[in-house]
């Protein structure tokens, strides 16, 4: 059989754990398929910006992506809703059950199908943590706080909680935290926050569940269909294996970073309690109502989540 090459752009830089995991997966898949399926991993922004990868695939430049649907929130409200479940679920492991048990995967695949994309698998991404220079213990604590605005639905949630959002890039937010332009920032998981030096100034790290991003791997439908069903199976298997491996590596990295931040940098870790979780969950429903109204697809994703949450007793 002839070899099929997938040029795929990912969302983080060359040195990111996710990028390295992706490269390892590419090597494994190539071996498993006897060289029939090879993936060329392109780091974030190497070809086009994060919000333009779908268009690049449609124009035949890329063959796939490992990214976050949130980047396309402005293009399609449904992808925005799919991309971030905010405070709906207590943790991402529970949320990911929506894909497997709640019909989420079928729904997401149908949505991606509209862009001639095949969603190979959702990939694990840990909870995001807010580095802050002030102590935030509850939803009320966000009131009047100067924060960097994340993209997509998370901005809506934080605005509802009363935060004063300032739009700026990730890099600039580091300087802005040091000088005090910002009190807190939405960035990423603990490991990345610590690596980028966010906690040189910010002595608090807050788990508010303001954002629970989805990441996924998807490829051009034509290219996918050109694979033998055996190789399709191997591709999906490799994707799921990578996701499972990331659960381990990212969790370990976060734990190590947390230990380092506590002991060496004097960072205090705060997690919102049940009461605030419920408050944020209620606000999430309000955000969903707004975003669901934007399109039938978006509403379908919202409805599916609500149904699944009821079924597991979260509502």
């Amino acid at each position: 059989a002839q070899a099929t090459e997938f040029k795929m752009q990912t969302f983080l830089g060359a040195n990111a754990s996710t990028t390295k995991a992706f490269e390892a997966m590419a090597a494994q898949l190539k071996e498993d398929t006897g060289g029939e399926v090879s993936i060329t991993v392109l780091p974030g922004k190497a070809v086009v910006g994060a919000g333009e990868t779908i268009d690049a695939i449609q124009n035949g430049l890329l063959d796939g992506q490992y990214t976050a649907p949130s980047y396309f929130a402005g293009k399609d409200a449904a992808l925005g809703v799919l991309g971030d479940t905010l405070a709906a679920y207590p943790d991402s492991v529970t949320r990911d059950r929506w894909f497997t048990e709640g019909g989420g995967l079928e729904l997401a695949r149908a949505l991606y199908g509209k862009y001639d994309l095949y969603l190979v698998c959702p990939v694990h991404w840990p909870s995001e943590q807010i580095p802050s220079t002030v102590e935030i213990k509850s939803v009320e604590g966000l009131e009047g706080l100067k924060m960097r605005a994340p993209g997509g639905l998370a901005s809506d949630l934080l605005s509802r909680a009363g935060a004063s959002l300032v739009t700026m890039g990730v890099g600039e937010s580091v300087t802005a935290m040091e000088t005090g332009v910002l009190d807190a920032t939405d960035l990423a998981n603990v490991a990345l926050n610590v690596a980028l030096g966010m906690h040189n100034q910010a002595k608090y790290s807050v788990l508010a569940r303001h954002s629970m991003a989805v990441t996924e791997m998807s490829v051009s439908m034509d290219k996918w269909n050109s694979l033998s069903s055996e190789n399709q199976g191997k591709f999906e298997e490799a994707c799921n294996a990578m996701s499972a491996a990331l659960v381990k590596t990212l969790t370990a990295e976060d734990a190590a970073a947390e230990a380092k931040a506590k002991s060496e940098m004097g960072v205090t870790f705060i997690a919102f309690g049940d009461e605030d979780a419920a408050k944020f969950r209620k606000m999430t429903t309000e955000v969903w109502n707004d975003w669901g109204a934007k399109s039938a697809d978006a509403q379908a994703v919202v409805d599916s989540h609500k149904a699944f949450m009821t079924s597991i007793g979260l509502n």
Binding site: Y71, F72, G74, K75, A149, G152
Partner: peptide
Amino acid sequence: ERSGSTLNSPLP
């Protein structure tokens, strides 16, 4: 097409 930010303007 919109920016997906809080403003969600048609900037792009």
